[in-house]
Write a protein that binds this DNA or RNA. Structure first.
Lengths: 245, 245
DNA sequence: TTCTCGTAGACCGCCTACAGCATACAGTTG
DNA sequence: CAACTGTATGCTGTAGGCGGTCTACGAGAA
């Protein structure tokens, strides 16, 4: 994983707005966190990451700040960065907030629904079902995210869409394996949801979305004990300060 | 405004965890933005700010990243940082999201209300009313924020509280002068709200909060034309790239 | 006059270097 | 054997500097 490799991720040899290194680093580190190569609670030494990615500490620092802003890592001044270690309590709260934001989005999407927008949603539903039929879990999860993002965008409230997107990304960290369990159910709920949006039935859309996200939550809670998130062992080189408060 | 001045803002001569310069810079820049010394749309040259605050460019860069994460400035790769220029559309959306988050917080706060927590809220109401009686608008606004923060914390959902806090801070940028208009009304609504929370009446608390935030919104909308936010004139040294997508 | 092109200046993104603090460990003392 | 202290090492936070790019501006051509 060399520097050139990182910098050229944009494909085009010359881009009008060159993608700053920090964004490539951001993506790379997030990938490492989501795939579990960097475990929750683990201390992230800047020099180490710099060596690993073949860049200097500077872009690493900036990427860590960005990651901190989205809640992926915790920054403890003077102690460095640590991969955020989600607690079960926090996961519950995130899921609750997600339900709140997505429900409102669905309501607004129904209020402002357009034939064009509905058609986009239906297309995503088709692709999602196809992925489930093909047992392609990863694609199914990806399209699921796309669908939810499309609904929040259809709501017309960009601020709401941004927050929902943020929270959803965090949630996905916890419950990706859930999709394996309830793939088909999830997509039939999606179809109903889109129908409600197409009919501009705000209350029904909101209600379906609320139930939908709560189903997802329940599935997550069920299998939480089955496959708990693995954390880094406590003495991970550098300890985080007690009661950071 | 020298470096020593910035670094020693923590008051105590020796702090266990030395506050990194970037956080002091963050506060300083945010203050400059909120007070209008840095106008919306204005280009923020790193060297200039570094000279102004008496630090090197590094902490400035990191502070700008943090500010970007909270939506106060926009970072355009290769073009630098610009003070975020809020549109009326965005303000409306922020206010709508605030209503959503605060309403849910009030509902949860009523559900989880404790005598101890309610007492804290009442104390804040008393102080707030006192500030209004003394015509101390700044203090009134500050305590208003404290009260809302206390309610979101009482909800027991930290994720929700954090988001609500973030959105509220953004909102306050737009409507601080609103408080001047409807100070007393606002605090009588607060009192009702706390009563509902004390009575553990979820629906009533939610409804009061919804109306309360919408009143605030209406007041803001009314005086928006009266005192529009002043922006920096277009040619502010460096232009931001056209249509960043 | 208006458009194009070339040049100069300014600024950003990144790298390297250094000072200071935090942690770990070994030696010492009770 | 346990607790404490001094020292060494690693890491963070900040400074300063370099190369490349973008903007602004003036000269020349249509």
């Amino acid at each position: 994983m060399l520097r050139t490799e990182l910098a050229n991720q944009g494909a085009a040899p010359k881009i009008a707005r060159p993608v700053p290194l920090r964004e490539s680093v951001f993506e790379a580190l997030l990938e490492l966190i989501l795939t579990g190569h960097l475990k929750p609670g683990q201390h992230l030494a800047e020099s180490e990451l710099a060596g690993l990615l073949g860049v200097s500490r500077q872009p690493i620092r900036e990427a860590l700040q960005l990651l901190s802003g989205e809640g992926w890592v915790d920054l403890h001044p003077g102690h460095g960065a640590f991969v955020h270690a989600p607690t079960v309590e926090e996961a519950d709260q995130l899921l609750a907030v997600r339900t709140l934001l997505e429900t409102e989005s669905a309501k607004l999407a129904a209020r402002h629904s357009t034939p064009d927008g509905v058609q986009r949603l239906r297309a995503l539903c088709v692709r999602g079902l196809a992925a489930v039929d093909a047992d392609d879990v990863d694609t199914s999860v990806a399209i699921n995210s796309e669908l939810h993002a499309a609904i929040t965008e259809l709501s017309g409230n960009k601020v709401l869409a941004e927050l929902a997107s943020l929270v959803s990304r965090r949630v996905r960290w916890y419950h990706t394996p859930v999709a394996r369990k309830r793939g088909r159910d999830s997509w039939s709920e999606h179809a109903e949801l889109v129908d409600a949006i197409a009919a501009a039935d705000e209350d029904r859309a909101a209600e379906i979305m609320r139930k939908h996200t709560e189903h997802t939550r329940d599935s997550y809670l069920e299998q939480r004990e089955a496959e708990p998130i693995e954390s880094a062992p406590e003495p991970t080189r550098r300890r985080r300060p007690r009661s950071p408060k």
